[in-house]
């Protein structure tokens, strides 16, 4: 299968990219690695008239410590994040979650900004990011603004990003040696998660339990008031709205959310919290 026809532009700066988005409105789509968008275009579920390729914009790929935060460029590819020493030391859940995305070829192409902006409820990195907290930095015609992670993903393929904005950076708190875990449940290793759970420092996020990635707030509150892991994990599916597909119906997804949350919390609280 092949995409429908489109016009292709390749801006050299974020400003030029924003200008292209302003010019073409909702006819335009950004492409970086293209591993979320091109499959949809091949199935003709997406047919943008203009493709704005931001992959050549310099200086969008980096991981660096800035104060209490780690700043990661939106153009950072999954394999780069997976292997980054700074990320491994400062926010180890992120490189691990990056290693769980798709397969090596996908990780060679896919970018952090791309998966953040795509807002698939079953994505690995947004789930880990939501558990970390922090913010998404976006740039539009009026300059840059920062959107809290908890306010960024609104629904299936829906974010707080305006039509003429570009994700340029993700900022997350440094967690260092704090315990963490990312529990992903799949039938095959390279599948999208049926359910996944990210846990770090008492915060818990869930993949594929609603239209977007969500926090398990009832679990977090229970932990905050000193409940046991078993008790807190038992609340993980509260307030979620899991869908039904051939892999799982809502009842089974709820069970998995509770089970994986328990396992994630146990791992995160374990000594040293070694890789999941």
């Amino acid at each position: 299968m092949i995409p429908g026809a489109f016009e292709y532009v390749r801006p050299g700066t974020v400003e030029e990219a924003v200008a292209a988005l302003v010019e073409h409105g909702d006819d335009a789509k950004l492409i970086a690695g293209g591993h979320s968008l091109l499959p949809l275009m091949k199935l003709r579920l997406a047919m943008p008239a203009v493709l704005v390729d931001i992959s050549r914009i310099p200086d969008l790929s980096y991981v660096r410590v800035e104060g209490d935060e780690v700043a990661i460029g939106a153009g950072t590819r999954h394999f780069e994040l997976e292997k980054d020493d700074v990320a491994r030391a400062e926010v180890p859940i992120l490189p691990y979650a990056a290693s769980q995305v798709g397969d090596p070829q996908v990780r060679h192409r896919g970018t952090l900004g791309g998966t953040v902006a795509h807002s698939d409820p079953a994505s690995d990195l947004p789930t880990a990011l939501l558990a970390l907290g922090g913010s998404v930095v976006v740039q539009g015609p009026g300059g840059r603004r920062s959107i809290p992670m908890t306010e960024f993903w609104l629904g299936f393929y829906e974010t707080a990003l305006a039509e003429d904005e570009v994700v340029v950076e993700v900022r997350v708190p440094r967690t260092g040696s704090a315990g963490w875990a990312y529990e992903k449940f799949t039938r095959r290793a390279n599948d999208w998660p049926i359910v996944a759970v990210a846990a770090v420092e008492g915060r818990v996020a869930l993949a594929n339990m609603a239209g977007a990635v969500v926090r398990a707030t009832a679990t977090e509150e229970a932990l905050a008031r000193g409940a046991s892991i078993a008790e807190a994990a038992g609340l993980a599916d509260e307030g979620t709205s899991p869908s039904s597909d051939m892999h799982a119906d809502p009842e089974y997804r709820r069970h998995l959310a509770r089970l994986l949350t328990r396992r994630a919390l146990e791992k995160a609280s374990g000594a040293g919290a070694a890789a999941a």
Binding site: Y8, G34, H35, L38, K42, P104, Q105, V106, H108, R109
Partner: peptide, 8 residues
């Protein structure tokens, strides 16, 4: 390594 069906 990349999948050339998903690269323009």
């Amino acid at each position: 390594s990349v999948k050339s069906c998903t690269v323009l």
